[in-house]
C-alpha cells in the first residue's frame, strides 16, 4: 500500500512559509513553524525568503487509506488522539515510525520516511 512519494521540503522563516506561493489544491504538511512537506515538486513553489531551502525529496513513502482501513490500523498502532478538524495535519509516532498524517473527511494519507516503510507496511498488513 505504501508508495514512493515525490515531495518538496521547505525550510524558511515561519512568516515566509505562511505566505508561500503554493498551488491551492496542493497538500501542505506543516511539520514545524519553519518547515513544510509539500505534495508537489519544487518547481511549483516559491517562498519569500532568500535563504529558504526548497528541495525535492524522494525519501518518503505514503498511502491513502479509507477511514474503514485507517481506523483499525490506528487503533492498534497509534496511541495518541487525532485532531477533530478536517482537513488537517497530524504527526507523531505511528507504528513506531515518525509519521505525518493528512486527514480528510473520507480518507487519510500516511507519510513515513522510506527507511521505515517496510516495517510500517508490515504493520498495515500489506
Amino acid at each position: 500500500m505504501l508508495e514512493p512519494l515525490l515531495l518538496t521540503r521547505i525550510v524558511s522563516t515561519p512568516a515566509a512559509l505562511d505566505t508561500a506561493d503554493i498551488p491551492a489544491e496542493v497538500i501542505v504538511l506543516r511539520t514545524a513553524p519553519d518547515e513544510a512537506l509539500v505534495l508537489a515538486d519544487s518547481s511549483t513553489i516559491s517562498v519569500d525568503d532568500p535563504h529558504a531551502i526548497i528541495v525535492d525529496d524522494t525519501g518518503w513513502h505514503g498511502a491513502w487509506m479509507s477511514w474503514d482501513q485507517a481506523i483499525p490500523f490506528l487503533q492498534a498502532n497509534c496511541a495518541w488522539e487525532l485532531p477533530a478538524e478536517r482537513p488537517s495535519m497530524a504527526q507523531g509516532r505511528v507504528a513506531d515510525a515518525p509519521a505525518k498524517l493528512w486527514l480528510e473527511d473520507d480518507r487519510m494519507l500516511i507519510v513515513v520516511p522510506h527507511v521505515m516503510a517496510r516495517d510500517v507496511a508490515d504493520r498495515m498488513g500489506s
Binding site: A32, A79, G92, R93
Partner: peptide
Amino acid sequence: MALRIPCPHCGTRAIDEW
C-alpha cells in the same frame, strides 16, 4: 502510553516520542 508532554506544534504526545 505513559507520561505525556505537550508540544506546541504537534499536540500532546507520550514521552517515548521525545
